[in-house]
């Protein structure tokens, strides 16, 4: 089943932080790690703007590492502030997902109203 991109959009920064907390990565590698984790439809063009914002907000930092197969690569890693932010984000996610699960698992109290045919009230009764 296709994943709703709007659902992913809200949690993607948290997933990026979590992935970087596990291991520092350069941009393209991070994308492939997210794809390998199950987010197959995630695109590099979605992740790069998030990396830019997280770095601007001081949640991640970067360092250049020379590469033999191309230009020096910019490796991103979590900062202390990013680690704290990740902790809050994960806690918030667990709270939200528990609430959502509770709402979704609640049994319906009444059957959804079926679309009834329109009634003509202007017709004369016999």
């Amino acid at each position: 089943m296709a994943r709703d991109p709007q659902l992913l959009k809200g949690v993607l920064p948290m997933l990026v932080l979590r992935t970087l907390a596990h291991q520092e990565s350069y941009g393209y590698e991070l994308v492939t790690r997210l794809q390998a984790a199950g987010l197959e439809d995630i695109a590099a063009g979605t992740v790069y703007p998030i990396l830019s914002r997280l770095e601007r907000e001081g949640l991640i930092t970067s360092r250049l590492v020379p590469s033999t197969s191309g230009p020096a690569r910019k490796y991103y890693l979590l900062t202390t502030a990013g680690d704290e932010h990740l902790g809050h984000a994960v806690a918030g996610w667990h709270t939200l997902s528990a609430t959502v699960a509770q709402v979704l698992e609640r049994p319906p109290t009444a059957a959804p109203a079926a679309a009834a045919p329109p009634t003509d009230t202007t017709r004369d009764q016999p």
Partner: peptide, 8 residues
Amino acid sequence: AEMTAAAA
């Protein structure tokens, strides 16, 4: 830089 790295 990212495009060049990915292209490699």
